[in-house]
Nucleic acid binder design. Structure first.
Lengths: 334, 334
DNA sequence: CTGAAAGCGCTTACAG
DNA sequence: CTGAAAGCGCTTACAG
């Protein structure tokens, strides 16, 4: 049972104090080279591995970050998860993962806090204000990733969803589209709200009405259903802006394979996120790219600012987006 | 600072012993209703939350499962991750996530063990035998998910990759294909090895040679490159079996958009996994379905068998696969 | 049902 | 540089 090897046992074998063993495994602690060597030898012989749980308890820092996620079928999130976890690992932190079901995020966050995570990153879940307060009281930094809750004490990292939506409207209008449609994600998500508001602002700027709107709920089925509904109207749209790529793929499939509609000749489609699949040739989706790496970098540096520097101010980072022109939207002729 | 509320403080306020507080939060422990009520009230007033780290230390069980994953851009894994984490949560366990880079899995596993995880699930990473032994010594159950290392003391849950490969061969041969090609994943992965062996066995059974073979490394670029190479040969294949769906999408894109080859009229393509994207209309990929839910269920029950029942025998579960006929492979006429 | 007490495996002043 | 000692916040026999 190597798992039961303790620093005291190593100390005994190396003929030093337990403190010396602890210091040997504490970067920066002062141990004489000879002592360190004896400890290392004994540790190797015994198969000693410092107990991170005990360390967490005594030091008050677990070096674990709670990550609340969901919607992993939308490729945007697995990629964020992977890169974020790697970035954290590179800094000696670990990721305690919680998959939130719609509705029970509060319960999950409770459990996360029980594990004394040093901070919480919420990707794709709405933070109840009660919980935000709880984290604040507990002095646990919270970063909302790709979500923004105005007036909450949580930090947030988002991309400029409003500008992205605006940019899509401008692009479609410049290409001569007149009958515009929007497929929303979830009504209560901040990304949806901002993307739509930006899109609407673009329409307002030229006095064009939004002719169709439906809620896709970030699902394939929802987006597909919305598309069929739009196309069955007396005046179908000639361009559809979809709240994210994941739904846009379903829109494309429904248009092309389901209804035999040519994209972009008859209808232009633009998504949001620029997940890897968007670049796959079968789709070639025109979309708004979120600066994923920059967002992750911002999240990590924000986290460590609060964790290690002790910076306490609430920070909201909003990073620029860019339109990626591919094959599903008519290009402005200019 | 609610975070600093301790069971002793709750005890003081409720005018009971610290033990009574602990019992109140231990399911099944005996506490008089009145006592429990007083404790609960005090806990609520103070904002008390039991410290899971302290509990782990004293009880010797962290209720954390280490999950080592990689390749999250292959949709198979995020889905496994999501469902596995949910299944674990439902049982009161949590997931400590490690993203392994090729090569450094040993280091990562070391850190995982330092956190006293109760068990380890390895998805998509090869377990070095040194580490397997280390886990064994530490009495930490290990489950290899979708990987099988013969003669290792680790448990494994896989689908019947050999039968899947065989089934693909039989299907393609029955449809009259004569010039078969295979795009491998990574040479050292057990899934690749078994899928290929099954495929080869099918060819051997009718005396057909494998005309083309290349290693795609589970990447888009690799698969795309392999496809171009195949099609540039004097005698290009009329059917390609691809080690997984993720690469098969690239094969399809390269064939159709890149080379203008008709699928399945000129070339049939079959993948493996049946990730959600395979069903998307733009691909409609014929593939071998892994029983993802059953595999996760098997993993979880295997884990808890060892964790809670104390069952110690090494178990290897191999679940049946099924061929999903869609639009990328010619159907046998019979 | 209840409390006093030991102890999980560490880190970290403190004194030397 | 080093060791003895306190203590992190709990669980769990043990005795009542």
């Amino acid at each position: 049972m190597k798992s039961k090897v303790t620093s005291a046992q190593v100390a005994k074998r190396a003929d030093v104090s337990q403190s010396a063993v602890s210091r040997t495994f504490t970067p920066g602690a002062s141990v004489a080279p000879g002592t360190r060597q004896r400890v290392m030898d004994a540790a190797r012989e015994l198969g000693y591995r410092p107990n991170a749980i005990a360390r967490s308890l005594i030091s008050g820092r677990s070096r674990m970050i709670g990550l609340i996620a969901a919607y992993l079928d939308n490729q945007f999130y697995p990629i964020v998860l992977e890169r974020l976890a790697k970035a954290l690992q590179a800094r000696g932190y670990h990721t305690l993962l919680f998959i939130s079901e719609p509705g029970d995020q509060d319960d999950e966050l409770e459990k996360l806090l029980a594990y004394q995570v040093d901070a919480v990153v919420m990707a794709s879940a709405t933070l109840s204000s009660a919980l935000a307060k709880e984290c604040l009281d507990a002095a646990i930094p919270v970063v909302l990733f790709n979500r923004d809750v105005p007036n909450s004490p949580a930090n947030s990292v988002t991309s400029d969803n409003f500008a992205g939506g605006r940019c899509v409207a401008d692009y479609l209008i410049a290409a001569g589209h007149k009958h515009l449609a929007y497929i929303a994600g979830a009504e209560d998500s901040s990304t949806n709200r901002d993307r739509e508001a930006g899109f609407q602002a673009g329409l307002d700027a030229v006095g064009l009405p939004l002719m169709h709107r439906a809620v896709g709920g970030y699902t394939h089925e929802g987006a597909s259903e919305a598309t069929r509904q739009f196309m069955a109207a007396k005046q179908p749209p000639d361009a559809i802006f979809v709240a994210n790529d994941h739904m846009a793929f379903a829109v494309l499939d429904t248009l092309r394979q389901g209804l035999g509609v040519k994209v972009p000749e008859e209808v232009s489609v633009i998504g949001f996120d620029d997940v890897p699949q968007a670049a796959w040739r079968a789709y070639g989706l025109t979309t708004v790219a979120q600066p994923t790496d920059a967002m992750i970098e911002a999240t990590v540096s924000l986290l460590f600012d609060q964790l290690e520097v002790g910076h306490a101010e609430t920070t909201r980072r909003c990073l620029p987006v860019s339109l990626i022109e591919r094959d599903t939207a008519r290009k402005p002729s200019s």
